[in-house]
Design a protein around this nucleic acid. Structure first.
Length: 411
DNA sequence: TCTGGGGTCCTGCGGCTG
DNA sequence: TCTGCAGCCGCAGGACCC
């Protein structure tokens, strides 16, 4: 479906097999081989697979053990997140050289609204070609671009033309493009929703379009039903929003083997609280609510949350709350956990919360101490300073709780 | 087959408040 | 003072996305 791009001002640009492509770019001897980026231990999933690996059935999010069975000859590579983040920043800079209206969705994809750039750079299709050429030229990787009159159709278009493709869906051909697609193509249809739709005998987007909204809402809920019906008719009014702010920041980790020792779990909570707090401070945010996530060995997931009297970006405060939530979850003392997570939600700009923070003198002290640690870590690396409980062989410290090696002023 | 880690959004329920 | 109600908020969990 190529040709008339009139009214198609939305572009969705998506890097092809992003992590794997970066690895192949940096190690050209891997070109043409089934490259699989993912966890190197026994637990974990595939983050990205080259198209040679995909031919053999390897998909992202697939357990790494299964990938190894399907593709024993694969080249398994540990992820290098810092490198991907750097490449992503340069790719986003290419997008922003085209238009300021860029909404990143993740490291490897973004929406662009090019309506303000058409006079300067040419038609949307032409702009899409320029983007693809610039990224191939500057970064040595390929991307696919979908061009349409709304975000959702542009995104479907880029997925349909992968890898290294360009697909324009003319405004008057949207329904021809959408209606033959399977329901799973719609945004918001995963395994569960797919099963509900299958039970209703709905297999294609056209089937959804011709089902009364009330039926979809009864089966899927008010919001999801209305949402799917609108998408099935190609209606998606959402604008491209540059500079969207985070709504939560967190960290979680799966243990290499299930853990039932509360002391080990609290130590992990300490580490994750530190990561979460650093994320908050780096983004200039404070959080009102702390959420703890506990995944049991049988994969049951429990979350517990608590809203704080005043917002914080202090690891110590987050850790104390996380420990209280863990204790309040009332797990059996021998409950085996496979994963723990800490998340901070209800984010506010730190500047807005500064007045409130000033009332909590002790918190400010911890805050100052942790900011000093941030500065040291920024200069010498993250591993240079950490709480005593996280220092290998710090048995004493661990036994007496996770006291920091840094004493806050006045504490 | 055995399920990561980072997120967002929605729903339902219960408590509080005016 | 008590009751019913609506609206809001906090909380927990589920589904989904990349």
């Amino acid at each position: 479906m190529a040709g008339d791009d009139t009214g198609c001002h939305i572009l969705h640009a998506d890097m092809d097999a992003f992590y794997a492509s970066v690895e192949i770019r940096d190690r050209p001897e891997l070109a043409g081989l089934p490259v699989i980026v993912g966890a190197t231990g026994s637990r974990g999933v595939v983050l990205s697979a080259s198209y040679e690996a995909r031919v053999l059935g390897v998909r992202s999010a697939m357990p790494i053990t299964r990938a190894r069975r399907l593709c024993p000859q694969g080249i398994y590579v540990a992820p290098r997140h810092a490198v991907y983040a750097a490449v992503s920043a340069e790719v986003m800079a290419v997008f922003r050289s085209i238009t300021p209206e860029v909404e990143p969705l993740s490291l490897d994809e973004a929406f662009l609204d090019v309506s303000g750039s058409i006079r300067r750079l040419g038609s949307p299709a032409r702009i899409a070609g320029q983007i693809r050429a610039a990224i191939a030229d500057q970064q040595g990787i390929t991307c696919s671009v979908g061009v349409a009159n709304c975000k959702f159709v542009a995104k479907l278009a880029s997925a349909r033309c992968k890898p290294d493709g360009l697909l324009i869906v003319p405004a008057d051909r949207v329904l021809d493009f959408l209606h033959p697609l399977p329901v799973a193509a719609l945004w918001g249809v995963g395994e569960q929703t797919g099963q509900v739709l299958a039970r209703l005998g709905l297999r294609t987007v056209a089937d959804i379009a011709h089902t009364p909204v009330a039926v979809l809402q009864r089966e899927l809920g008010q919001a999801a039903g209305g949402h799917l019906s609108a998408l099935a008719w190609g209606r998606d009014e959402r604008p491209v929003i540059p500079g969207a702010v985070d709504k939560s920041i967190g960290a979680e980790e799966t243990f290499p083997v299930d853990v039932d020792d509360p002391e080990v779990i609290r130590r992990e909570l300490l580490r994750l609280s530190g990561r979460t707090a650093r994320g908050l401070r780096a983004g200039g945010s404070v959080a009102r609510t702390v959420v703890v996530k506990l995944r049991l060995a049988n994969f049951t997931t429990i979350t517990r949350s608590r809203t704080l009297p005043e917002p914080t970006d202090v690891a110590r405060k987050i850790y104390d709350t996380a420990c209280a939530l863990y204790a309040a979850a009332g797990l059996d003392s021998r409950a085996r956990l496979r994963l723990v997570g800490v998340r901070a939600t209800g984010l506010l700009p730190a500047s807005r919360a500064a007045t409130q923070l000033a009332f909590g003198e002790r918190q400010v002290s911890w805050r100052d101490a942790e900011q000093a640690v941030d500065r040291i870590a920024g200069r010498f690396g993250q591993d240079m300073v950490r709480p005593a409980a996280l220092v290998k062989g710090a048995g004493q410290a661990a036994e007496h709780g996770p006291a920091g090696t840094i004493r806050p002023p006045g504490a």
